[in-house]
Structures are given as structure tokens and as C-alpha cells.
């Protein structure tokens, strides 16, 4: 387990480094920030001065060396737009996204496991059919479209929910509902399949034959074994939630890291993009480790 963690950490670090190199050089190709941040009638001298202050006059390779040098001292540079340390800007936004993702994934996991298990106990009955169709629709629907339809129905027609911002609890309902749908559909299908497998397995049959009561059979024998593939998928979906977060945050004006990334790319705020990528990648790495630990807790065979 420990050597595996170490290996993971090294390969993740390499992946992250390649990503940073790629984005660093690609982002310098998008254009000159001076053209964006100074007024149109700024003199050439002012532009030169701006580039000098932000170190944009050096060759790109020198800029990169300086960036990496600062990075190992945990200095992520300044945000051009906000004139504050980039990492502060990113972490602020990241907390919003983290909450959004945590609440959504908690709801999704509970709902998918409950509904999926009930469906597995009633294979072929109406409940199972309805759950299967719903999960199929959920897995197929584009999130931005659901968001728009949600706005039309709940905000425009009935005026029940606000369309953007984060002020009250009501502001969170639509974004969470939209993010909820796709992972719910996918995880539900996995839970159902895995539960059906576990219910037909020899150890469950043995337990039933021994006269174990229904409740322990479900919670100890079946559910615990059926959870292994489910946990993997929950981990994948939690990472994929960031995909949805870009779209959902943009539509609902949610100040999370997805919206921040898009904004800072548009505004050529290079340091913020890179810091956001690093923070996200580290978060995904930590989450994968959590998944591994959960896996080990459930499956004694891995605990070596």
C-alpha cells in the first residue's frame, strides 16, 4: 500500500509537470496581456513598462525557469487582474467548488446506492424499470441543457429559484440539481448491476441457507461486497464533476474554480490558470488516495 502510494505520487507529479509545461508555453501563445490591461491609447513606453514589471520581456524559456524557481518556494506568482497572489484567488474560488462538489457527491452517492439497491432487489418489477429509464435519461442529458430548462421552469415561469449568485441556500439548489443528474444515472447503473451480482453470489446464498436474517444479509454480506466497483465509479465521477462544474458555474454565475479558469484564460491571467490547474490536480490526487483507502477498508485482500 505504501509503495503504491509513493509510486502514485511520483507518477502524478510527472503528469502535473508535463501539464504545467504544456499550459505555460501554450498560454504565452494567446497574446500579450499588455494589449488587454492597458488602455488602447497607452503609449509604447507604458506598454514596455508594463511588460517589464511583469517580466514579460524575457524569452519564454527564461520566464519558465523563473516560474519554476518561484514554484519550488511555493510562490505561485501574482494575479494580473486582481494584483493579489494567484494562489489566494484560486483557493478562494476552489472552496466554493469544493463545497458544490462535496454536497453533490454526498447526495448522489446516498441516492444512487439506495435507489440502485432497491432496484436490484426488484429486478424486472416496475420500480426497477422506472429507475433504469431514469438513469438512462440522466446519463444522456447534456448538463447545460438541463440547466437552461431548469432556469426556464423554476426561475422564469414560477420565479421560485434565483438564477445566479451564491447568496442564500436557494442559490445552491439549481446548480446542485443540475450537477446531480449525470453521476446519479451512471452510479445507479453500477450499483444495480453490482448488487444483482452480489445477491446471486455463493456467499449470500450460504448466508441465507444458514438462516441469517434479511437485514444482516443485505448490509453485511451484499452491500459491503457490492460497494467495491461502486466506490471506483464514485471517485471517477467526482473528478468528472469538475467538467460539469465549468458549464454549471458559467451558467449560474457561481464563483468557483471552473468559472475562474475560463475567466482567467480570457483575461490572459497566466499565473491564475496555472495555479488553478495545480490546485485541481492536487485535489484529484488526494481524492484518488481517499478512494484507495476506502477500497482497502472494504476489501481485506488489498490490505497488505
Amino acid at each position: 500500500m505504501k509503495t503504491m502510494l509513493g509510486k502514485r505520487a511520483v507518477s502524478s507529479l510527472i503528469s502535473l509537470f508535463v501539464l504545467i509545461v504544456m499550459v505555460f508555453f501554450l498560454s504565452r501563445l494567446t497574446g500579450d496581456p499588455a494589449a488587454l490591461y492597458l488602455p488602447v491609447d497607452a503609449s509604447e513606453e507604458m506598454r514596455q513598462n508594463f511588460r517589464e514589471i511583469h517580466g514579460l520581456n524575457d524569452p519564454v524559456i527564461v520566464q519558465f525557469g523563473r516560474y519554476i524557481g518561484d514554484l519550488v518556494q511555493l510562490d505561485f506568482g501574482e494575479s494580473l487582474r486582481k494584483a493579489r497572489p494567484a494562489i489566494d484567488v484560486v483557493l478562494e474560488a476552489f472552496v466554493w467548488t469544493l463545497w458544490l462538489a462535496l454536497i453533490t457527491m454526498a447526495l448522489v452517492s446516498v441516492a444512487a446506492i439506495v435507489v440502485g439497491s432497491i432496484a436490484a432487489f426488484n429486478v424486472g418489477r416496475p420500480f426497477d424499470r422506472v429507475a433504469s429509464v431514469l438513469s438512462l435519461i440522466g446519463a444522456s442529458a447534456p448538463d447545460f441543457w438541463i440547466a437552461i430548462v431548469g432556469i426556464v421552469v423554476f426561475s422564469v415561469s414560477y420565479g421560485l429559484l434565483p438564477t445566479s449568485g451564491t447568496g442564500t441556500v436557494w442559490h445552491w439548489i439549481l446548480p446542485i440539481a443540475v450537477l446531480f443528474i449525470r453521476p446519479f444515472g451512471l452510479i445507479l447503473q453500477i450499483v444495480r448491476g453490482s448488487m444483482i451480482n452480489a445477491l446471486g453470489s455463493p456467499y449470500v446464498k450460504t448466508a441465507r441457507a444458514k438462516g441469517v436474517k434479511n437485514r444482516p444479509v443485505i448490509f453485511v454480506h451484499t452491500l459491503r461486497n457490492a460497494m467495491l466497483p461502486v466506490i471506483t465509479v464514485i471517485g471517477d465521477q467526482a473528478a468528472a464533476l469538475l467538467n460539469g462544474a465549468v458549464v454549471v458555474e458559467t451558467i449560474f454565475g457561481f464563483p468557483g474554480v471552473g468559472k475562474l479558469m475560463i475567466d482567467s484564460i480570457l483575461q490572459r491571467d497566466f499565473n491564475v490558470i496555472l495555479a488553478a490547474i495545480m490546485v485541481t490536480a492536487i485535489a484529484i490526487f488526494l481524492m484518488n488516495i481517499l478512494i484507495d483507502i476506502a477500497y482497502a477498508l472494504l476489501d481485506p485482500r488489498i490490505r497488505t
Binding site: A240, N243, I277
Partner: peptide, 22 residues
């Protein structure tokens, strides 16, 4: 390892970043 690099980051987010730059 090359596949790991691509997999290490959410695909749509990666596409967003690269497409904005290209």
C-alpha cells in the same frame, strides 16, 4: 505514462484550456 498525463486532469477542462489557447 503518457496516458496517465492525459488522464490526470478532467477531460473537458483540459479541452477548454487548450481550445482557448488554440
Amino acid at each position: 505514462r503518457l496516458a496517465d498525463v492525459i488522464m490526470s486532469f478532467p477531460s473537458l477542462l483540459l479541452a477548454v484550456i487548450v481550445l482557448y489557447m488554440l
